[in-house]
Computed example of a mutant assay.
Amino acid sequence: MRAPDALDWDGYCARWSAAHGGYDPRRAPSLVRGWLRLGHTLGSALLRAGVGSPNTVTLFGLLISLGVPPVAALAPLGGLWAAILILLAAFADTIDGVLAVIADRATRLGQVYDSAADRLSEAAWVLAFALLGAPVWLAVAAGAVMWLHEYVRARATVAGLPDIGAVTVAERPTRILVAIFGLLATLFDDRAATLTMAIAVLVALVGLGQLLRAVVKALR
């Protein structure tokens, strides 16, 4: 059976907005908007090629992320290969959501799978930095604050938050870029893993503050 034509960018944004509490991705910061647009392009190509299962792509991305820690520990270019794996996993994480929207295959269970896969992936990335020399307590703190960011949003939605609350500086694209550039930096400086986790904690705390402010305003 021929795969259905992918929606154009405006049609995708309309469906994405409907699935995310009415937030229009065309109004998102340039980094987030650009990432979503790239995902739409790649997802559209996959859909035309007959790949239409979002859950399959989610699982593929998770498996790639779970390979990041052992690959990162390989000398001397572990950081480079681990960064490439995160980039591939990030593409998969974006494309699964795109497929769910443009192929009209979004499900509530799929959203649970995707969220769980994201958290497990980020835990694997944080573990990689610990293996590369970052203090364990700092790596755990980075993972915990990133997790808390998403937990607050999820609980606020259950409590009646009408949309995603706010697009913060600590959204998924930012975490991906911090991880990738941090891993690449470890090729040149032994202290890069520690510095990356410190930056991750700082960015996540700022993002959490932005989100909490929006949540309090919306639910008060």
Rank of each mutant, 00 (worst) to 15 (best):
L195C: 01
A90C: 02
A83M: 08
L183M: 09
L74F: 12
F181P: 06
L202H: 01
A130K: 00
T186Y: 06
Y113K: 02
A154G: 09
L63H: 04
E122G: 08
I180C: 12
P70S: 04
S65T: 01
A83R: 13
A90S: 12
A200T: 00
V136P: 08
L177E: 01
A106E: 15
P173G: 12
P162A: 15
P69D: 03
T194A: 15
V145C: 10
T157N: 11
D189V: 04
V68Q: 00
L77K: 04
T196E: 14
A90G: 13
G182D: 03
D93T: 06
D114P: 10
A144L: 13
T196N: 08
A204W: 02
W137N: 01
P173S: 14
A83L: 07
L80M: 06
I95R: 03
V101T: 15
L85E: 05
V203P: 00
A72T: 03
L120D: 05
T157L: 11
D93S: 07
A204S: 15
T107H: 07
I86W: 02
I86Y: 04
G79L: 08
G97C: 06
M146R: 07
L77N: 13
A144S: 14
A123H: 15
V68R: 00
A144E: 05
A73P: 05
A134E: 10
I84K: 04
A123D: 08
L161F: 11
